[in-house]
Simulated scan of single mutants.
Amino acid sequence: MSPTSTPFSAELRAASKEAHQGAESQRYISALVAGDLDRAGYTALVMQHHVIYEALEGAAEAMRHDPVAGPFVDDALTRLPALAADLEFLLGADWHGRIEPSPATVSYAGRLGAVCASSPEQFIAHHYTRYLGDLSGGLHIGRSVARHYGLAGDAGAAFYRFDRITSPKAYKDAYRARLDDLPLDEEGRAALRAEVLVAYRHNTEVFADLARFVPAGDAEVAA
């Protein structure tokens, strides 16, 4: 990167700004943060997250030693154990057999399985979209969820806690620096940018599907 060129992390952020805003503005997210869902409506999101992260973190194991993608694989980010604990609290010991992935989630997980274990660029795109979101707006969502849905401590909302990351801002800064230093040509960067948009599209479709849990009055106001 030359001194006057735009950092790649800034390019990614600019290229995905509209898609990011579209995901955040989904009425399910508005209802979730406002505390307008019932416990089942919240639990449905935890189920979808488990399916999504099972696919992504499975791919992370395949990419752990990849020279391009490997530096992004960090056990401090791993979400599956927290999601399992949340689902056990919310659904009981038989939670695994009670997970109901939506069609949008099945499609999202299918995309992760199709590209993330074989393409470093596409893996990084999905990794970036999910985990940097978790360390940004996700922290705010976690505080709202715990308050509105009566989840004391980690019980039911452990997904939103990153106990091994003491400073989310410092972590995100270092993550963006790794993006800026990626040894990719323009074709590789273009592939990564394009896949970030795919990731946001899938994420938005999951939220749109979950809108069925938004009470009718809230849906009418948000429309």
Rank of each mutant, 00 (worst) to 15 (best):
P7Q: 08
A211M: 00
Y175M: 02
D163M: 01
M47D: 12
A199D: 07
P103G: 05
L192W: 07
E220C: 12
S2K: 14
G137Q: 10
R147C: 01
A82V: 10
A44H: 02
D173F: 03
V33M: 09
R39T: 07
Q48W: 04
S136E: 01
G70F: 01
K169T: 12
A93W: 02
S102R: 13
F89K: 04
V214K: 00
F159D: 01
G153F: 11
P183G: 07
S136N: 08
A23C: 10
G92P: 00
A15F: 05
A216V: 15
M47W: 04
R201W: 10
D181K: 12
A14Q: 15
I99L: 12
E24P: 00
V51M: 07
P183L: 08
A34R: 14
M47P: 01
S107E: 05
V73L: 07
H148W: 02
G217N: 11
V106H: 01
A82G: 14
E18H: 12
T43V: 07
T105E: 02
Q26M: 15
I141F: 06
F159H: 13
G153C: 11
A15T: 09
A15I: 04
H202P: 06
D74F: 06
G92C: 11
D38S: 11
D218Y: 11
L139H: 06
L192G: 07
D173T: 13
E57G: 07
A208H: 09
A190S: 15
H126V: 01
D154P: 14
F207C: 07
E220M: 13
R64C: 10
G137L: 10
H49G: 11
I99W: 02
I52V: 15
P183A: 11
A170T: 09
G22S: 14
G142Q: 00
L179G: 08
T78F: 15
A152E: 14
I124S: 07
Q122R: 15
A158K: 13
Y42P: 04
Q21L: 06
Y200S: 05
A84F: 04
A216W: 10
V68A: 08
A44P: 00
A158C: 11
D86E: 05
S2F: 09
A109Y: 03
D209V: 04
R79M: 07
F123H: 05
S30K: 15
A211Q: 10
G110R: 00
A62K: 12
H20W: 05
P67S: 05
A152G: 12
I29W: 03
A85C: 10
Y149C: 03
E195A: 13
V51A: 12
D185G: 11
G113F: 03
V46K: 08
L12C: 05
Y131V: 01
